[in-house]
Design a protein around this nucleic acid. Structure first.
Lengths: 206, 206
DNA sequence: ACACTTCCATACTGTCCGGTATAGTCCGCG
DNA sequence: CGCGGACTATACCGGACAGTATGGAAGTGT
């Protein structure tokens, strides 16, 4: 039941925002009433934290599913990048929820700490992918950490832009941005192949 | 008086967030009471809009002051970039206020429209600087608009990172990021000069 | 002096919402 | 069977706050 409440909270927060969703609504969405909700959670803050945890776990699960079929380090990196960019551009719920969390983080140390831990795990995830691609000679970047930091920052920015420019929310832009981000990472082989042989175009993920 | 109320609203919103600031507080900050405030503005929404307009005007004024002393296109671009990056990293009020506005934009079309107009004006500002630098042969980028879009996105992302990592809020990181952004713009001369002659180091703004 | 306008202060109103109190139901265990 | 614990539903509470009503003050024009 606590997990169902957390899911309901996430679902509602990610559509309507945190302030616009009251506890009666979360409880009803989970099929119970507010009394039950208060049995499991002490406060709205605690429910918000539960929704965050739900989101963090879900993100990790989804991105791992995305890269699981691939062994090539650069392919894995590309897939992960593609997933992230797609999430930023097309996943409106992700946008709403994360923005709400950021704003809450401004004044709530606990929420900030939670996001920071999540961000650290995402960073380690990407550094791992990048180092593997680097070891395989597919990426050339002087400093993996810094490159990943830049990448993550760029993706957050892109997410914001998508909020204000719905035309960005397309597969074409997604591909464009993914390539741009790969370029900033110092992708060596991808670029050359693209310039030399148009058949790599067909190789691009859909 | 309306301008004083808008300034008060901005000052308070940029420190405490929009939800955490009630109208009594804004009025008191401006030296009046809520009745006066309601004489000038119809609703809290209208006061939020006034605070936004105040912020937008202030931003344009400040960045123009920053680049006014310089004639060289690349120097102007660098100064503007430096100002923006500094604002993102060090100006906490800017961070708080803009994040609050983004979150409000998720569900409020009027706020979203306002920011979008502001963003368009910022984009045009940077495209203007970039084109000038390009015409002077100081910048090499295939598509100014796209480059500026990427730049603006990156800056928003950096602002978010600064929220979660206070160590980023330093002049060293500011310089590092500014250089990185210049690199993504296709800055030709700056890079070469830096590699060839250490004296350009002293030329770097403090 | 009076009327009008602009602006302001104060008290009030009603809604919303997080949180609480209390009673009820169900299940497992001795 | 009785009891305790986990869970649930319902009614209630009090505070917060945007917005409203009303009266007052000051300035201006006739």
């Amino acid at each position: 039941m606590p997990e169902r409440l957390a899911q309901s909270a996430f679902a509602l927060f990610s559509r309507h925002g945190i302030q616009n969703v009251n506890l009666d609504r979360i409880a009803a969405h989970a099929g119970v009433t507010k009394g039950s909700l208060y049995w499991h959670f002490e406060s709205k803050d605690e429910i918000i934290q539960a929704a965050c945890s739900h989101y963090y776990r879900s993100w990790h699960r989804r991105i791992n599913v995305e890269i699981a079929p691939f062994a090539d380090p650069l392919e894995r990196l590309e897939r992960a990048l593609g997933f992230s960019v797609r999430t930023c551009l097309l996943d409106k719920e992700n946008r709403v929820f994360t923005l709400e969390i950021f704003t809450l983080s401004l004044h709530d140390e606990a929420v900030r700490r939670g996001w920071r831990q999540f961000l650290d795990s995402v960073r380690e995830f990407y550094v791992g992918l990048l180092e593997a691609a680097r070891a395989a000679g597919r990426i050339k970047t002087p400093d993996s950490r810094q490159a990943v930091d830049f990448l993550l920052a760029a993706m957050e920015g892109i997410k914001l832009q998508a909020l204000f420019d719905p035309e960005l929310c397309s597969r074409r832009v997604e591909k464009q941005i993914s390539e741009q981000l790969l370029r900033t990472l110092g992708c060596v082989e991808r670029r050359r192949a693209s310039a030399a042989d148009g058949s790599s175009r067909a190789h691009t993920p859909r």
